[in-house]
Structures are given as structure tokens and as C-alpha cells.
Write a protein that binds this DNA or RNA. Sequence first.
DNA 1: TCTTTTCGCTACCTTGGGTATCGATACCTG
DNA 2: CAGGTATCGATACCCAAGGTAGCGAAAAGA
Lengths: 191, 191
Amino acid sequence: MTSTTSARPPGRPRSGVNAAVFAATLSTVEELGYARATVDRIAAAAGIAKSTVYRRWPSKGELIVDCLLDAFGPAPLTGSSRAELMTSTIRWVAAKIGEPGVGDAFAGVFSDAVSDPALREILSTRLQDPYRLALQEALDEPENRVLFFIDVVVGVLLHRMGMTGEPMVEADVDALVDMVLPHFTDGRGKM
Amino acid sequence: MTSTTSARPPGRPRSGVNAAVFAATLSTVEELGYARATVDRIAAAAGIAKSTVYRRWPSKGELIVDCLLDAFGPAPLTGSSRAELMTSTIRWVAAKIGEPGVGDAFAGVFSDAVSDPALREILSTRLQDPYRLALQEALDEPENRVLFFIDVVVGVLLHRMGMTGEPMVEADVDALVDMVLPHFTDGRGKM
DNA sequence: TCTTTTCGCTACCTTGGGTATCGATACCTG
DNA sequence: CAGGTATCGATACCCAAGGTAGCGAAAAGA
């Protein structure tokens, strides 16, 4: 039992600085914006060397994706009805994107992905797919409908963030809920 | 009449290559993606020197904004009812973003603006405001509602473009119309 | 022909993502 | 305690791309 599997690889173990790097990433992005939050600066803020960052993440984009995964965490799919479930999901995404640095980092890596197919694939697979699958399960909707739901919620919040530099105010999040819910609940025989 | 105003400045006149630059920008962005569509390559595709580009536009971002303004043109605010007007607007934006290079360029400059407040101001003032004002007039809605409308339509279309690399298919544009229209027409005493 | 302005060209600066190297260090095993 | 192994920090480096500067050539009008 201790030999075939990894009983722990030899050599100096990795120091547990991932959490510090994630925190440094968000605070640096919040302070300087996405483009000026260079890997050098993030590493300095985390108190490590740039080479250590590139030993753990192959690119800045993947670092950001991992950082966002850490920031979002698992989706709290709460609510007994479809309407409650969708409402809480929308508010949860809005709140997360409103957290310091998260919205900027999200919009930044999203835009990098536009001209980087490899990063787009990672963004889609590692970040979007888990939530999409969980929502498909919880809402009992086909893939294309859930993808449309994600396009709407994330797209609107990111557009507002990108255009104004500020997260969407609560009144507009309310409007978003009011707009989305009827489309996904009315006249479809699902409650 | 010929003296006080500009009777034409002396010196060599500017060659009329703006249209060629816009066309070269879109085709280069379509071929290589936003980030790899460098100013050097765009200039080469237009048959001019990079320095000529920077003589006319102070930055790549402003070049793209001008290019998008040229590509979109004035909004065709057609339709006799509010519903028709909003429908045609949504379909017009979707069609434009689906044109070769336009969606990529839009998403690219949008993401650049995330970490560049100056570019964000230009994007908001030069590109968004004209259409926002025209829509406020045509729809007789307050500014915040029109801004929300723009966030929804553009945000969704750009998110789909950024996540998949392809413009939104017609069936989903239909769903977008179906979702947006009731929110802006039902129970509000406006037709 | 002279003046003025834009042109293409080239060389250059700076920033930032990403790589390579190297001595130092931390951990486990014998 | 000695040896092996893998990570660490530091530094130097490569390359692409946005943007600038300077120059002689070309296109107009006067």
C-alpha cells in the first residue's frame, strides 16, 4: 500500500503558497488593473519569485483561471423551486464578480481568451463546464439552454463591469432576475 | 468665406486610406485574432507604414474604436412599435457582431478597456453613447434602462463570441429577443 | 522654385510574457 | 550525519508588440 501509489515524491516538497498567490493576484489586479498586474508584481506581492509561479502555472491565463476557480468555489445550488434556484445563482455570480479584483480578473482573462484559442478552451473546460453541468442537473434543462443562461448572466455582469469599471448595482441585478426568470419558467411546464 | 474657415491647409494632403485601414483591420483580426493583429500587420495589409497609422490614431485601441464605428454605422431605428424597434435593434447588433472580424475586434478592444481607463472612456463616449442616446429617444426610456438594455444585448453576444469563438446562432438570437422584449414592454403602459 | 505637410522607412525604447541557469535549501532515506 | 532529489529565489535573457523619433522623399499650393 505504501509503494505502488505515491507515498510522497522525494525531494524538497512544494511550499504551500498557492493561497497566498491567489490572494496576491486578486489584490494586485484590484490595485493596478488586469494588464498592469504583471506576473512579476503578483509574485512580488506573494513574496515569491516569478520562476516559482511559472513552475506551477504554465501561463498567466491559467493562473487567473485557477484563481477564479478558487474565488468562486462550488456553486451554492440552493432553493427549493426552479425560480429560487435561478435567483440565488444569479445573485451569487453577481456578488462574486463584485468582489475586489474578481470582476477585473474575469473580464481580463476572458478578453485574453478571445485571441488565444488554447486559453479559451481552458476557460470553457475548467471554469464554465463544471458550473454548466451542475446547472443542467439542478435545473433539468438541455445544454444549449443552460449555456444561454450563462451567456446572459455572466455576459451582462461582465459588460457592465467592463464599461463602467464598477460592478452592477443591486437594483440592476434585480432587473436581471426579473428579466431572466420568466423566460426560463413561464409556459414551459416546469416549476 | 474662404479665409477664416479652413480653405484647405497647406502642405501635402492626407491620402484617403482610412477606408483601406478599416478593411485591413477587420480582415487581419479575422485572420489572426485580436492580439496577433498587430499594428505592423494591419499597416502592411493596408499597404501603408506603421508610422502613418500612429499619425492618425493615437493608439491601437482608438483605431479599433474608429473601425467599429465605421463598421456599425448609424443604428437603423426602424419599426413602428416599441417591440419591432427593439427586435430590429437586437438583430442588427447580432448581425454586425457576426460579421467577419467585427466580433473579435469588439471583444478585443472591450477587454483592453478593462485595464485601461482612458480607453474605457473612449469606448463609452464614442461608441456606446451615440447609440444609447438614439435609443433613449426612440424608446422613450430613462438612461439607466437603456444602459441595462445595452448591457444585456451586447454582453450576451460578446460572451458567446468570446467563449465559443463563433457568433451566436440565429435560434439563440431569437431566444434573446423573446427574453428581452417582455421585460421592456409588459405591464409598463408603453407600446 | 520654395514652403509646408504627409509619406515610407528604419532604428529604437519600453513593457511584459515566458525560458534557462545556478547555487541554496528543505526534506527523506540510509 | 552523508547523500539524493526536487523545489526555491535570483538573475539574466529572448521575443513580441505598442509606441516614438528622425530622416529624406513626395505631393500639393503659392
